[in-house]
Design a protein around this nucleic acid. Structure first.
Length: 198
DNA sequence: CTCTTGATCTTCT
DNA sequence: GAAGATCAAGAGC
């Protein structure tokens, strides 16, 4: 069980400008990018887009203490508590007030795998960060990170160096607006929370 | 493999 | 009081 593996080539650091457009454009462009928190993380392989005009979004009913960051400017991190026990992370997109974001659902571990194993209490690489709650635990992301800039320490997001094959489909685990195909994944990745149909 | 359930925070009704 | 952008463990097939 080697902890070393070839890391993906890292492109330039993404800045807030990258997120200042529709979440439906940002989401597929994030597939293949490398997300690091305090140097620990990996390649983004699964995301979902949310927008305040559709009822599955946390921002649908207007600002609350929890979702306030979503209503702010793009390029910041929105972290929320899920089912009382997990943390989930989003990248705020578009523009101030549009309350749109991209939920990070899964990454392929490439950096700091021993730390992720320790935090998760598991050895199987496929189980370290193949889900929104799992990846936050693996990267030690909590409400303390809510509102942090995406282009400043401890967060670093490196652009992909090549455009990968991307698949899209229905979002997972929601009960409203289930028909919207706003989930994006890296084709063939074994590190997603669930495979895409087909 | 699938199905069920408990954990227990934030928001809405 | 109930539901939800979840996860892991256990039962059953």
């Amino acid at each position: 069980m080697a902890d070393l593996k070839p890391a993906a080539p890292l492109g330039r650091l993404l800045t807030k400008k990258f997120f200042a457009r529709s979440a439906h454009d940002v989401a597929p462009d994030l597939i293949g990018a490398t997300l690091l928190v305090d140097g620990v993380g990996g390649v983004i392989v699964e995301v979902e887009a949310y927008h305040h005009t559709e009822p599955a979004a946390h921002s649908f009913n207007g600002p609350t203490p929890r979702n306030m960051v979503m209503f702010g400017p793009p390029g910041f991190l929105y972290v929320y508590r899920s089912y009382g026990i997990h943390w989930c992370m989003n990248f705020v997109c578009e523009k101030e007030g549009s309350a749109s974001a991209v939920l990070i659902r899964a990454i392929e571990p490439t950096h700091g795998i021993p730390a992720m194993r320790r935090r998760r209490g598991m050895n199987d690489e496929r189980m370290l960060s193949s889900g929104p709650g799992k990846l936050c635990e693996a990267m030690a992301v909590t409400n303390k990170h809510n509102g942090l800039a995406l282009d400043a320490p401890p967060i670093a997001i490196h652009a992909r160096t090549r455009k990968p094959d991307i698949v899209s489909g229905l979002r997972i685990g929601i009960t409203k607006a289930v028909e919207l195909p706003w989930r994006y994944g890296l084709k063939g990745s074994k590190f997603m929370s669930k495979p895409f149909p087909g």
